[in-house]
Design a protein around this nucleic acid. Sequence first.
DNA 1: CTGAAAGCGCTTACAG
DNA 2: CTGAAAGCGCTTACAG
Lengths: 345, 345
Amino acid sequence: MYVNERGIMKTTMKDIAKLAGVSQGTVDRVFNNRSGVNKETKELVLKIAKENNYQFNMYARALVNTNKNYKIGVVINSIGNDFFVNIIKGMKDSIKTYEQNGLSLNIIELKGYDVEEQIKAIEKIEYNKCDALVITPIDDPKIKEQLTELNIPIVTINNDLDVEKLAFVGCDYWNNGELAADTALFLKNIQSILIVTGSNKMSGHRLRVEGFISRINENFNEKSINIIEGQDDDIETYKKVRDLLSTKSIDLIYFAAGGIIGGLRAVKESNKEIKIITVDETPYVVSEIKKNNIIATISQQPYLQGKKAIELAVQHCLFKSIPEDKNIFLTSNIKLSSSNFNLEV
Amino acid sequence: MYVNERGIMKTTMKDIAKLAGVSQGTVDRVFNNRSGVNKETKELVLKIAKENNYQFNMYARALVNTNKNYKIGVVINSIGNDFFVNIIKGMKDSIKTYEQNGLSLNIIELKGYDVEEQIKAIEKIEYNKCDALVITPIDDPKIKEQLTELNIPIVTINNDLDVEKLAFVGCDYWNNGELAADTALFLKNIQSILIVTGSNKMSGHRLRVEGFISRINENFNEKSINIIEGQDDDIETYKKVRDLLSTKSIDLIYFAAGGIIGGLRAVKESNKEIKIITVDETPYVVSEIKKNNIIATISQQPYLQGKKAIELAVQHCLFKSIPEDKNIFLTSNIKLSSSNFNLEV
DNA sequence: CTGAAAGCGCTTACAG
DNA sequence: CTGAAAGCGCTTACAG
């Protein structure tokens, strides 16, 4: 291995330049794929870098980028949805460390899943000259096309979409559903189960339900499973649960999506003794767990999702680093009444 | 706020030096508490820095430290204890990012809790001129004295000790015990419980048992609780569990420490149907959970403990940063058969 | 007690 | 297509 004049074995750009007989500027052009380098020169530099196991110094790179004032755009369908509060909190905490280096967030919050609105938000991010985009993309061809044509790096969060991106950060929904099933299997005397999902059109919801059912079927013989789509809406969920409970006997309800407040209202009004398992750690869910009205909830670490997604975007700006793993799944956890809620380190 | 000649509002050491009418060198002396600065000069610099909300640039600092080859010493009582495998894995993964900047680990592994051996290990760390120490300290006055006199920053991991340190990284054992109790309370027909702990002399073990019992007592009327100390030893645990099971009827055993292999052997030989709850995610525990011989285990994220502890030590070396929070508790999680084991992001 | 200069390892204009 | 020089914001000798 090469030992430079300081007796240090770590090769720098200066070392590579010397070994290749070119200037540092040229080495920089090669390493950063800038245009206008003779093909042979480029190959030589690359060969020497490889032979000497060149690794760039991330701190030197970041120092040069100090006054670039990078902006990370965020498009998130969070309005009116308590679940996203902690994702956004994680994002804001994440950017704090980098604010002294001029980095900032440009958050656009949306309500519901309107394709046209999301398109406008992405256009705004472009207009604001953001250097990266973190988004909860709607699974729609128009969005896919728009994101494909966007020329800044993308991180999808919580909900994935098949586009070129730095990474997806989110939840393994199938496993999340399995854990709910594992918890349900703890209980005795469960004859019939009701699953309340949001919409079968959303892959996350679908996977959760499938994971749940597959695990239940492995272990549960008297399988009577009903499924309701509540559209993440409290009123719709309330009505559907109320109507179903008036005709069927249910021992356990698994709320696999939003609309939990409405659903629980219907359960209480029915005056039946029904075990409840939910997802996530929204304030209402936490308070009902503490009161033992919900026996368990399966969480997906939203705070860390937000933190991690911003981190990836920032590191791409400052260090040009590209995550090795394209799919970053945060572990789902079973939470009971003694658990720490909304407190991820 | 001050705007320097570049029109940038972020103040640098250069800006502070100019405003104070001194050289950058003097500003550096003040900021780093180096000796030999006139008292008034020092106060002036500090005042101006505060007025202008000066924040150091971590990347510039790290760049200067590039060829310092900092060494992080690790003293860990891990030999023969599967639990520590993932702590060490987390440590090694953590240092990887920093190896290109010359950082390295100097790990000394010990077997058991012999005070003299730990003293020798710490001496070796000193002799090796390490720049920080990460340690699982034995709760002993001699160790305490030695660590107090050590002149490098300390991070305690998994087990705490009352000495001056950067931080403690570990588990909230009380809550860890509570979660085991919450899980136990899911089960029907539990009349009598056996707790197998390691040693009441170890604070972590003690707290876990206390957290468990306090939560059980809140909710469990027919409370018959027996406690055994297995000294983290398989054979001792085997014998004690075997003897107890031959005289008493037990519905649930909570293994709150090591010796689980021995304890489970005794349970199997007894041919009784006993529910088992354990701690941690050692290979044996995981395999028994998958076989449904253990119904749940309460984990404490050892991988993240290792990762975080090294991170704190590294950041102190590179950036001189001191953690705001002196106690970093990783969340305990309830793991059932579908859980992801040993896979913390 | 204090200052001027060089250096950490990159990137960025500028000049040719 | 290429090079020489300056700069990012700190710290480190060295000189006085």
